[in-house]
């Protein structure tokens, strides 16, 4: 701490203020007398329930495909690897609405895959599955980027040792590699969950908006803003609380 120049303090404080001030300003607009009624309305509760369910499912999906992706990107060597890495991180920089349009032309009723799924009787359009697809699409890079970085930092020393002692590749991966990066895996999963929770653009473009099926909390907030700004503020505050809880839990888990 003592090696830090003192002038760092001012921009750092300004930055912190820049993040905290709008949140405080929003909280100050919450009409506390009505908050209970606004938050326990059927529409709000159903949006909250749907948001938590779909975000958890998306986070799980991110782990299932994201962990193998990260391991491959961090450990494998083949031509085009760096290009592949850039491409899978694309949803990180794309506006979510672009992701929504891309998903529409893939899984939509007339999309590349959706066409064939439709024949099989699987309809993704306007279903909760569509919400999970949209959330997974935007959240996946968050898990991959944090896990891949951790894997590179951890290095391969222990893996090489374990292998030389006779452990098979699967045993090395599950018994050595992943336990070493467990904190990053957890924080990556929480990041993915948080990103899924906030997903708006891809969902509204691809999945639609219907209470209890596709209308997640961010969509409900955006809709309430049309007719009842007070309810929108209360719901925003609720989403903020959920986000704070998620971060708090993640920090405790990771540092423990």
């Amino acid at each position: 701490m003592s090696t830090l120049p003192r002038w760092v303090l001012l921009p750092a404080l300004l930055g912190a203020l820049f993040v905290l001030l709008p949140l405080t300003a929003m909280a100050s607009r919450v009409r506390w007398a009505n908050v209970g009624a606004l938050l326990t309305s059927e529409a709000s509760l159903s949006a909250l329930r749907l948001s938590v369910q779909t975000s958890a499912t998306s986070a799980l999906a991110c782990v299932l495909v994201g962990v193998p992706m990260s391991v491959l990107l961090a450990r494998a060597e083949f031509r085009g690897l760096s290009l592949l890495r850039s491409l899978v991180l694309l949803p990180l920089v794309l506006p979510p609405v672009v992701g929504g349009i891309a998903l529409l032309y893939t899984f939509g009723r007339q999309g590349l895959l959706g066409r064939h799924l439709e024949v099989l009787g699987l309809e993704i359009a306007f279903s909760t599955t569509a919400v999970v697809l949209a959330q997974t699409f935007v959240a996946l890079p968050f898990l991959v980027i944090s896990l891949e970085g951790a894997l590179r930092t951890a290095g391969t020393r222990y893996e090489v040792t374990a292998a030389s002692l006779g452990a098979g590749p699967s045993r090395v991966l599950l018994g050595v590699t992943l336990p070493l990066v467990l904190p990053s895996l957890l924080s990556g999963t929480v990041l993915a969950f948080a990103r899924a929770l906030g997903e708006f653009g891809a969902t509204i473009t691809f999945a639609g908006s219907l209470q209890g099926t596709t209308r997640t909390l961010p969509l409900e907030i955006y809709l309430q803003r049309e007719s009842d700004p007070e309810a929108a503020v209360a719901l925003s505050f609720l989403l903020m609380i959920v986000a704070v809880v998620v971060i708090a839990v993640a920090r405790r888990r990771v540092s423990a």
């Binding site: 009723r109 509204i204 639609g208 908006s209």
Partner: peptide, 21 residues
């Protein structure tokens, strides 16, 4: 009984022109 209640009329139109609806 709509499958989706959109935010704007443009969103409704897009769902129709893209063949989703």
């Amino acid at each position: 009984a709509p499958v989706s209640e959109e935010q704007s009329v443009t969103d409704v139109l897009n769902k129709v022109t893209s063949g989703q609806a």
